[in-house]
């Protein structure tokens, strides 16, 4: 007994080090699986509050260019509206709505790490939930990962865990959008079969497979493509429409039917097993 106590006293710093190391390693390894840790994210009120303060000060500097962006977006939407076939008033019925949109601002943006997360200033209070899609006026940005009362952290498309259903525009050939962590302007589209005719410059949009994003939200254009190791699928480099280094205003997309879709899929899978 005494020897044990002596041992503990003699190696107390080393044991302390091991203790802290195990804590941090367990948190790190745990989150190497799919989801980010519940506690270790920048959407809590302390970090969110500090980022919000810093955003409040710095947001004035690029007000002009942000306004220009919003005006351009409005111009595009008006163009679509005035040239659409529907001339009469559109009746809005809440049972008919497929997606609702919430606006927000980016208060922290990362793109230099392997797993990049973005923090936005909308949270549970604004009915943001996990697994909602986040887009900008140009294209997709990511998926909501964690929420606090006033803030939410978003898993950026520039994250090695990111996996988004995407397809080639005007076709129904879909694949998965991933990131190989190399360049912040390029993401990869995999699992497109070899027989699909593609050319450099083709547009990539979100597919209809996921209940997170609506179909046909722009992602980017094909920059370079090659066959992968199995020689039956393409490995496509996609350059993003979004400038990931400069994002301010974002839109969060809510699909009210998502729970129903997920439940149905779950039931189908469990029925299959019998």
């Amino acid at each position: 007994m005494r020897q044990i106590i002596n041992f503990l006293i003699r190696y107390k710093t080393f044991l302390l080090y091991i203790f802290f190391m195990i804590i941090s390693l367990s948190f790190t390894i745990q989150s190497h699986s799919f989801h980010q840790s519940k506690f270790f994210n920048s959407s809590n009120w302390v970090t969110g509050g500090i980022f919000q303060t810093s955003y409040n000060i710095t947001s004035y500097f690029d007000l002009k260019s942000e306004n220009q962006k919003l005006v351009n977006d409005n111009k595009r939407l008006r163009h679509i509206l005035y040239n659409s076939k529907i001339k009469d008033t559109v009746r809005i019925d809440s049972s008919n709505i497929n997606y609702t949109v919430i606006s927000g601002q980016v208060i922290k943006n990362n793109y230099a790490d392997q797993r990049n997360y973005i923090t936005i200033n909308k949270g549970k209070k604004d009915s943001i939930k996990q697994d909602m899609g986040v887009i900008t006026d140009k294209g997709i940005l990511g998926i909501v990962e964690n929420t606090s009362n006033k803030y939410a952290s978003v898993q950026s498309v520039l994250n090695e865990h990111s996996n988004i259903n995407a397809k080639i525009k005007n076709t129904d050939h879909f694949g998965s959008l991933i990131w190989n962590t190399e360049h912040y302007n390029t993401v990869q589209l995999i699992d497109i079969p070899r027989l699909v005719p593609i050319t450099i410059g083709d547009t990539i949009v979100t597919g209809a497979m996921s209940s997170i994003f609506p179909e046909n939200i722009p992602i980017g254009t094909i920059k370079k493509f090659d066959l992968d190791d199995s020689k039956s699928f393409y490995y496509i480099n996609v350059s993003l429409f979004n400038d990931m280094t400069n994002i301010k205003n974002v839109y969060i997309i809510n699909n009210p039917n998502r729970e129903e879709i997920l439940k149905l899929e779950q039931e189908t899978i469990s029925n299959d097993q019998y």
Binding site: I23, S24, L25, F27, T28, S31, Q36, S37, F40, N41, S42, N44, V46, T47, I50, F51, K108, N110, D113, R115, N116, Y117, T119, S153
Partner: peptide, 8 residues
Amino acid sequence: FFSDTMAI
């Protein structure tokens, strides 16, 4: 906490 890097 601030940079979303788990406990690295």
